[in-house]
Design a binder for these strands. Structure first.
Lengths: 351, 351
DNA sequence: GTACCCTCTTGTTTACTAAACAATTCTCAT
DNA sequence: ATGAGAATTGTTTAGTAAACAAGAGGGTAC
């Protein structure tokens, strides 16, 4: 440790490689033997070289993960948790740091932008939708760094996004119920600000329309916000009417959980009196009583794909914005039974 | 030209570069100065070196483009022509040869496979859908070379595919007509074997269902095959009834052309008596009388994306199969007018 | 003190290579 | 004719030399 100033060229000399090789090691580019990399890292530590913190917080680049403030426990959330896990895993593989960033709906996105985070990050993924208005997206875009939406799309903006096949998911559950013979079907939908839930709803409606069915408005109650169990109030509303349906579609697993609670309280049996099916295939859905028939949305894969997409955008590839959609899959469990209820025009029971 | 045997090492010596460089030039890998490449190609020609024909027909790799036999003039076809143009352009950029291959529906795909084409090609794109049955796809997959579907998807098989946003396209036209006040809407759909047309149809139905509308079956005539003008017979069928709609949605531009012909023959004015809109935005659609309101499907971009996707699959990337969907856009022209027609029994607004 | 130009360093990129590797093909004693 | 070893092919990995861009420094003029 003489008077050698810590610079790339000096490290190169000390480690007996070329400056290029040192650079490649620091930026972990491919094509370096592990042992060489090891030696160079050692030399770097030895000479006390500080990797210059330009546009990133350490070595490698960083990507931002923008999530809603109100979903703070989002990492433990069953749906987004899986997505984030996939995202993080893939980030590690490609040598990115993931910088988590909250999003406060009351202040808009000014918060995020002002913190100067945008300067430190090569690209953003916006996970969880709803409160990302087109105006905010325009603001974010004005930073001219790549953005990828996850489980959200704003068609007017033509942004690259990664989605579950929500339309098909809705179509698939609905088809399933129709195939079982159900005709009197209720639908518990969600707030229209979530584009993914809207897509699911449209899938349901398309399937029903193909069977020349329309859901009566009284069987499509508006979602209520505030209640902890999302589908509970909606389901109650349906059950209070004179006639109730033979099957219910819940727009998400969580909604289904609330609805099941309401059905049980009302003294009806699932699936004998009312069949229920939903979309998400969260872990819990396999452990309800009865286990919930639902549609799998490959959450982990979506996280992986979101990072891959962002990576390519950062590399300047993928100049055509597209929706990247992962395949969904119907998971038949017990909440819809198997037999065809002979409901026809007359309800099997009345209120 | 002494006794130098034409081998990579000899070429390298003659051109005063390393064998590696020669290899890179032949396989057109990036990172070679154009002048150097030029010099090496000259030397190759000079010494009469034959690039060994392993797994490809010349230098660089090849990709197959599989299209239906009956659409032989597909290259000049307005829809697929654009896709193929994008595909070919991108192929050239990435150094692939495109091998065109017909697909005879009568013999199944045995033809393609037996010709040994599969051995010469690193991957396939299946353009144009309809007659690709799941069984054939399984056969193709058994070759274990990458496949990308264009404007077709088979959800059970989870294949990578590139699609227009057909669902949204259908949704958008329908919304447009609904926004103009139309409630009495007919729909000219296509054969269900074309998944893209099915998606468009579902988009239409979803939009209508959101407005609590169902299309009466007599306004959704079955498509007839055989007639040169696709929508002509279907439209006639509708016009022969006692009541006719105020608007017609055609599932494709071609269908719309036929329908317009039928409407004119019947002595009705477009858009005053009947509005018409469709999906495709083929070149001709701008030059009909009146110009056709339609939804643009970015065809060229789809071709580019299909090749990029195939390229990545060949590289062993993109292990998660996804639907890649390009954004569609409503193109408002004159075939729907602008005013709200006061025809039919429905007022402009319902309370 | 500060504005300006020139040089020199620092990180970065491009274009290329040495050497090892794998798969044939060739050679030659048996 | 045959099978072991040697040689020759194309291919891949792990690098490097040299050019380049953008600051940083440093001297000089005002």
């Amino acid at each position: 440790m003489g008077k050698t100033k810590p610079t790339m060229r000096n490290i190169a000399k000390a480690a007996q490689v070329s400056p290029t090789t040192v650079w490649m090691v620091i930026h972990n580019k491919p094509g370096i033997a592990p042992e060489t990399a090891q030696r160079i890292w050692a030399t770097i530590a030895n000479l006390g070289y500080k990797v210059k913190p330009t546009a990133n917080g350490g070595h490698g680049e960083s990507v931002g993960l923008l999530i809603e403030q109100n979903s703070v426990p989002v990492i433990s959330d069953v749906f987004y948790g899986e997505i984030i896990r996939g995202f993080q895993t893939e980030a590690e593989r490609l040598g990115y740091h993931v910088v988590l960033s909250m999003f406060d709906r009351t202040t808009g996105n000014a918060d995020v932008l002002n913190r100067g985070l945008a300067q430190k990050v090569s690209g953003f993924v916006v996970a969880n939708d709803g409160d990302i208005t087109p105006e905010m997206v325009i603001q974010l875009e004005s930073l001219s760094i790549p953005i990828v939406l996850v489980e959200n799309h704003i068609d007017e903006q033509r942004l690259p996004c990664v989605l579950g096949d929500n339309f098909m998911a809705g179509y698939q559950v609905t088809r399933h119920l129709l195939n079982l013979g159900h005709r009197r079907i209720a639908l518990l939908h969600g707030p229209t600000k979530y584009s993914s839930l809207v897509d699911r709803l449209r899938g349901c409606m398309a399937a029903l329309a193909e069977a020349s069915l329309l859901i009566p408005t009284e069987w499509m109650p508006k979602p209520v916000s505030g209640h902890p169990l999302k589908g509970y109030v909606q389901m109650k509303e349906i059950l209070e009417q004179t006639e109730y349906p033979t099957a219910v579609i819940a727009i998400s697993d969580k909604t289904a959980f609330g609805a099941m609670e309401a059905i049980r309280e009302f003294g009806l049996k699932i699936p004998d009196d009312i069949a229920i099916a939903s979309i998400d295939n969260t872990l819990e859905s396999a452990y309800t009583r009865p286990p919930l028939t639902t549609v799998n949305i490959p959450k982990y894969e979506m996280g992986v794909l979101a990072l891959q997409k962002l990576h390519r955008l950062i590399q300047g590839e993928d100049t055509i914005p597209v929706k990247t959609i992962v395949y969904s899959e119907l998971i038949v469990r017990e909440s819809c039974g198997a037999a065809i209820p002979q409901s026809g025009d007359e309800p099997t029971h009345s209120g």
